[in-house]
Nucleic acid binder design. Structure first.
Lengths: 139, 139
DNA sequence: TATTGACTTCAAGTATACTTGAAGTGATAT
DNA sequence: ATATCACTTCAAGTATACTTGAAGTCAATA
């Protein structure tokens, strides 16, 4: 059975050790065992939990919602519908964000083309482009 | 020439009026004219600026980076490379996030299938599913 | 004309998610 | 053996992005 120190986990997830302790304080990372001297021992289940924490946090779930989610998970039978509701909502939220991000990427690409044409115009002394010509373009 | 009140703009972008004033304080929304009584008058250029602000903020740019960006834009000729660098970085950042969000969506979908199978198992008194069977699946 | 509502400024307050610092214990390297 | 490093707790501090409250001005409606 593989175990990890706080440093191992910190490196693995690119999270400061203080954040791992904070997640434990916030009760979203639970049942972390200790050595005789009090040092944290992380197991595979904590690695999996952290993957879920990072996934949900990245996509916009707050710490307090994470607390709810993991509380529900501990009482799966009673809270199965709460779990499903939360996951469905999160799924829809991610799908919306994906669509929005694609639009935002297009917006940035348009700006990039516009300014890159401005750079060309500046060096080659060509006509300065006009933003309205880029506003509707797909790149 | 169409103009807008703070309320119009607030509704248009689903942003509280206080946020629009804050963006002006932070100098990322500039040159807002006033009525004789001091009320803000927004023009098309502010609407375009706000679209860019929302796009860049949503995709992770901070207020201070937005300040830099719009400062560069005001001195396009001198800062053309700074503008391009910032936009290229933001483009790459969005692309990375898109890939990560797709993975995160898969993670949530896996969880959703898992818990929805648990719900079935609970009501139909079937075998309780095991998470490790879902961990690698694509939905 | 009075009052209601919408706007204004400016300073201070809030929410979220950590981060830091002090003080202490135990383990490791020279 | 001793110094240094890694970890510990707990309270307080920080960063970011707003939000709120008080006090005042102006415009419109009953």
């Amino acid at each position: 059975m593989t175990v990890y120190t706080i440093k191992d986990v910190s490196k693995m997830f690119q999270l400061p050790a203080s954040t791992l302790r904070y997640y434990e304080d916030m009760a979203i990372l639970t049942n972390v065992r200790r050595t005789a001297a009090g040092q944290r021992i992380y197991e595979e289940k904590h690695i999996h939990r952290l993957r879920t924490i990072c996934c949900l946090k990245r996509t916009g779930l707050s710490i307090s919602k994470l607390q709810m989610f993991f509380t529900y998970e501990e009482q799966e039978t009673e809270h199965i519908d709460d779990i499903l509701d939360l996951l469905i909502e999160q799924q829809q939220h991610i799908e919306k964000q994906l669509i929005q991000f694609q639009k935002d990427l297009e917006h940035v690409k348009r700006k990039l083309h516009y300014y890159s044409d401005i750079k060309t115009a500046l060096t080659a002394k060509k006509m300065h482009p006009i933003w309205s010509d880029y506003r509707e373009k797909q790149f």
